[in-house]
């Protein structure tokens, strides 16, 4: 399997590490958020859509340029539809996660 790193081009999957679903966003965590924030974090950390089909997911090109990537990939065919850089890869200046 090869993954097209937006910086390095197509590379053997052995250079990459998989993290998981890129859809969940880390919730804001006010210090006094109480159990409501726990609920949000529980959802963020533990619950997954785990779809059979196209997903957005995090890959890390740790065996290469050390960029975090967001790939659109099918879990049924393993085909990559797109691979883009995480908002903060390189010297990119983003106000917050998700901006690009």
């Amino acid at each position: 399997m090869r993954i097209a790193c937006p910086f390095c081009g197509a590379r053997d999957s052995g250079e990459f590490t998989y993290l998981g679903d890129a859809s969940p966003k880390r919730p804001d965590a006010p210090i006094d958020g109480g159990t409501a924030v726990e609920d949000q974090f529980y959802d963020y950390v533990y619950l997954r859509d785990n779809v059979a089909g196209l997903t957005r997911e995090y890959w890390y090109h740790g065996g290469g340029c050390r960029s975090w990537l967001i790939a659109e990939r099918s879990t049924t065919t393993h085909e990559f539809k797109s691979v883009t850089a995480a908002p903060g890869a390189g010297a990119a200046k983003a106000k917050q996660a998700g901006e690009r």
Partner: peptide
């Protein structure tokens, strides 16, 4: 050492790109 580096890069590039 390896997992921490990966984690830190995740924080830098994904969670807090504003830093």
């Amino acid at each position: 050492a390896g997992p921490v580096m990966q984690h830190l890069e995740f924080c830098r590039q994904v969670l807090w790109p504003e830093l």
